[in-house]
């Protein structure tokens, strides 16, 4: 027994090192992008508060730029409003409630955003008290895909960035309606990949890639990027390199899009996924 205590005394640093290291490794390898969110309430409340202060200072420097974008957006919306007024005049009464709309928009500001990691996340300054929920789409103010919400705290929400190797969505080629999965390969913050496009599909450089109508997060037709290059792989499918429209290192103001039919769609689909 005495010898055993002596032995432990000799190697307890090594033992502690092994225990801590194995625990950390276990934690890392068992964390999917969703279990990661479990750590977030802690991280969110401390770090996001922190970032909130620093980004409120930084955002002053972008005010002029933001104004220009907003002005352009206002003109664009005014024009659409005018068009809608003409249409609405044909009906006697129209009672549109916000709940009856399929997609509802809200604005938010990014308080933290990384692009240099393999798994990048976005923190925005709106949380559950502003009605933000999991699986809401995050789109730049110009209307380009940026990410989606994976976890909310009271005042902040965390989104998975499109520049995250766990990000999964689908994309459609604008002119030819072929679609395939979209993912980030972790190489450049300006490009993502669109794969599984059949070899007889017609692709041209500069074609716009849109979100598909079977995404439960994004409304159909949200712009993602344009085709930069494409090559055929060994399974005779095209791998398309897509240049992102959103400047991921410069997004500041974003739109949050809520899909009101999401729950209904998910419950319907889950019925058959469980069989």
């Amino acid at each position: 027994m005495y010898r055993f205590i002596l032995f432990v005394k000799k190697v307890y640093v090594l033992l502690l090192f092994i225990i801590l290291e194995v625990t950390a490794l276990h934690f890392y390898t068992n964390s999917s992008s969703y279990t990661k969110a479990n750590l977030l309430p802690l991280s969110n409340s401390v770090v996001a508060e922190f970032y909130g202060y620093s980004s409120s200072v930084v955002s002053y420097f972008n005010l002029k730029n933001e104004n220009d974008i907003l002005e352009a957006e206002i003109i664009n919306l005014k024009n659409q409003l005018e068009q809608n007024r003409v249409m609405i005049q044909n009906f006697d009464t129209i009672d549109v409630k916000i709940d009856s709309l399929e997609y509802v928009y809200a604005s938010a500001t990014i308080v933290n955003n990384t692009i240099a990691r393999q798994r990048n996340y976005i923190t925005i300054d709106k949380g559950t008290k502003d009605g933000i929920e999991v699986d809401m789409a995050i789109v730049s103010i110009e209307g380009f895909v940026v990410g989606y919400v994976i976890e909310c705290s009271e005042t902040f929400a965390l989104g998975i960035s499109i520049l995250n190797i766990d990000f999964k969505s689908s994309g459609r080629i604008g002119n030819s309606d072929w679609y395939g999965p979209i993912y980030w390969d972790g190489v450049s913050h300006e490009n993502i990949m669109l794969s599984d496009i059949p070899k007889y599909a017609e692709i041209n450089r500069g074609d716009t890639i849109y979100t598909t109508s079977f995404s439960s997060i994004y409304p159909p037709g949200v712009m993602i990027g344009s085709v930069e290059s494409f090559e055929i792989n060994e399974s005779m499918l095209y791998d398309v390199k897509v240049k992102l429209f959103a400047h991921m290192s410069a997004v500041n103001k974003v739109l949050i899009i809520k899909n009101n039919n999401l729950v209904e769609k998910k419950t319907l689909e889950e019925k058959y996924n469980n069989i």
Partner: peptide
């Protein structure tokens, strides 16, 4: 916690510390 890296920083800094 601050980088949201789920343990990689801990693994690396534990190893270098040891």
């Amino acid at each position: 916690v601050s980088m949201l890296t789920m343990g990689i920083n801990t693994i690396a800094s534990l190893f270098t510390a040891y």
